[in-house]
Every structure is written in C-alpha cells, then in structure tokens.
Computed example of a mutant assay.
Amino acid sequence: MRAVFGVILASAALAATTLAGCQQAELGAENAWVRLPAVQGRPGAAYFTVKGGTQATSLVAVSSPAAIRAEIHEMKHDGKMMTMAPVKDVAIAAGERVEFKPGGKHVMLYDLSPEVRAGGTVPLRLAFADGKTIEVKAEVRAAGDAHDSH
C-alpha cells in the first residue's frame, strides 16, 4: 500500500513540475503600467514585459479602448542624440523576456480618454504575428510619479 501511495505522490509531483514548466513556456505579459502625459492632449506611454513562449513570434500591435490609437516605438542613441521612432514589430524569441520601459521600447497611447486617471487601470491588448492575443490590465500612473523609473 505504501509503495502504491509513493508512486501516486511521485506521479503527482512529476505532473506538477511538468505543468509548471508549461506555464513558464507560455507566451505572456506582466508588470504593465501606463504613464499619463504631463500635458493634457499629449500622448501617454505604456510599458510592460513580454515573456516568450515555446515558439518565436513578434509583437505586431498594441491597442487599448482607453486610447484612439497606439503605436509601438523605440528610443535609440543616434550619436549624442536620443531619437524615437515607430517600429513595425518587435521580435520575441522563444523563452526570452523583452522589456518595454522608459528610454527603450514602449507604446505611445494617443488621444487617451479623459476618464483615465492615475490610480486606475486600463486594458492593453497585445497582438502577435502568430495570431495570439493577450490582454493585460495596466496600472495608470501620473507623469512624474516616483514609480516612473522602473
């Protein structure tokens, strides 16, 4: 009886480990937040981390019902100048993490709804080249919020 119980426990542990491995390999997004513009009428910005799944893909679009339009952008050093430009897509390698953060990749949110306020949340919908979509809730922060730097 003990041997059977031991086999059942070992099988359950193996199944839990296998499921945990599957969850880690699933395409996802986390730590989403939106910075409101310092000047009303200007665009806001969205930041998050994308976790690659078992297959490589590309992030091709981001949208939100809180904004009329959203564009994926990237900041780069061009000599001594920082430049910002829209990008068509962002490669997400299998199992890798790609961070969208201030001073790097980010999403510009144009014509944000006046109902969007610091302390609330807004949904972000991430669309990938393989047809998958992910929706995350992004915490809304005021411009200049002390949490802006991470």
Rank of each mutant, 00 (worst) to 15 (best):
K88M: 09
M82Y: 04
G21E: 11
E74I: 14
V87D: 09
K88E: 13
D89A: 13
G104P: 02
Q23A: 12
V107A: 07
E99S: 04
G41K: 08
T49N: 03
N31W: 06
G144A: 11
K105V: 04
A3P: 00
E30R: 14
K105S: 01
T133C: 03
Q55T: 13
G144I: 02
C22A: 06
R125L: 10
L14R: 03
H150M: 07
H77T: 10
V34E: 03
W33V: 01
A129K: 11
P37Y: 01
T49R: 04
Q40N: 14
E74K: 08
L36Y: 11
K88P: 00
H77C: 00
A66I: 09
T133Y: 00
T18R: 01
D78W: 00
E96V: 04
T18K: 00
A32P: 11
S63N: 13
K80Y: 08
M75C: 02
G53C: 02
L36V: 12
K105M: 04
K137Q: 15
A91R: 06
E99H: 02
L27D: 04
S11I: 10
R2E: 15
V87S: 05
R117P: 10
E26C: 09
V140I: 13
T133V: 11
V62G: 09
T57H: 00
M108F: 07
D130F: 06
F100V: 08
E71G: 02
E135D: 14
M82L: 15
Q23W: 09
S63C: 05
H73Y: 13
K132D: 12
G52R: 04
A12Y: 09
T121S: 12
S63F: 01
L126V: 07
D145G: 00
R117C: 05
A85R: 15
G6K: 08
D145Y: 01
M84V: 15
K80Q: 12
H73Q: 12
A127Q: 10
Q24Y: 08
V87K: 08
A10C: 15
A10I: 15
A138R: 06
G41I: 13
A94I: 04
H147D: 08
F128K: 07
V39M: 09
W33G: 03
M82V: 13
A25G: 06
A15V: 15
V116E: 11
A146V: 11
T57C: 01
V62S: 08
